[in-house]
């Protein structure tokens, strides 16, 4: 950008972005917006992990669950979440609810898919031997299937974690009173690109930080499993 490949108005220099970030950071407004976003992102992601993980394992384990849930999951997932706004607004309005729903829907599939594929790859022999040793169905599920699904499930959650940051921005871009996505839209509309990219980068670094913490925790979990 220093070479003038792109006009400085559209892609400001990194130093301009950094100083714009500093100006934002001394204003409590930025942190209020970040808190609003993290609440929505966290709620949507937590729902996606709990519901998506349980659903994925249940889909691999019980045929009826698979039959009933898979068409819905498969149809909802490849949908741009912003296209769903006319529908979600009908149910939940423009508030936190519709944003959390969109984040939840977007984050759910990687988790479900990871859990489903992981649980399915659990070796039949393991299941049989556990059964023959007298383990109940639920015991087998918990002691054999879930642990063997764990690596894929954990990678699914990593993907969902990253997606949750992208989704919270795109859900807040459209309609919002607060949030980092709101700030990006607000600053972009006014053409304040250095500050806008400062917020974009801030989202990326929050995601980076979350990813690092998550990877640490995940490696602990995997070690414990071994």
């Amino acid at each position: 950008m220093r070479l003038g490949l792109v006009s400085a108005d559209v892609l400001p220099s990194l130093s301009a972005v950094a100083s714009a970030w500093w100006n934002l950071a001394i204003d409590p407004d930025l942190w209020r917006n970040a808190a609003a976003s993290l609440y929505r992102g966290g709620a949507g992601l937590a729902l996606a992990i709990v519901v998506g993980g349980a659903l994925g394992i249940a889909m691999a384990w019980w045929r009826p669950v698979n039959a009933l849930a898979s068409p819905l999951v498969e149809m909802l997932y490849p949908m741009p979440k912003s296209a769903l706004i006319p529908v979600t607004v009908l149910w939940l309005g423009f508030g936190d609810g519709s944003k959390i729903l969109l984040i939840f829907l977007g984050c759910m599939l990687p988790v479900t898919l990871g859990a489903f594929n992981g649980a399915r790859s659990c070796e039949q022999a393991l299941v049989w031997s556990a059964r023959s040793m007298g383990a109940s169905r639920l015991n087998v599920l918990w002691d054999v299937v879930v642990p063997s699904a764990l690596p894929e499930l954990l990678n699914g959650i990593r993907t969902a974690l990253a997606l949750s940051f992208i989704l919270l921005v795109s859900s807040e871009l459209i309609v919002a009173r607060a949030g980092l996505g709101y700030l990006i839209g607000f600053l972009g509309e006014g053409g304040v690109y250095d500050a806008m990219f400062a917020v974009v980068l801030m989202v990326a670094f929050l995601g980076f930080f979350a990813d690092r913490v998550y990877m640490l925790a995940a490696s602990r979990v995997l070690r414990w499993r071994d």
Partner: peptide, 8 residues
């Protein structure tokens, strides 16, 4: 409330 354009 800020909106991204008038359609919404």
């Amino acid at each position: 409330v800020r909106f991204q354009g008038t359609p919404p």
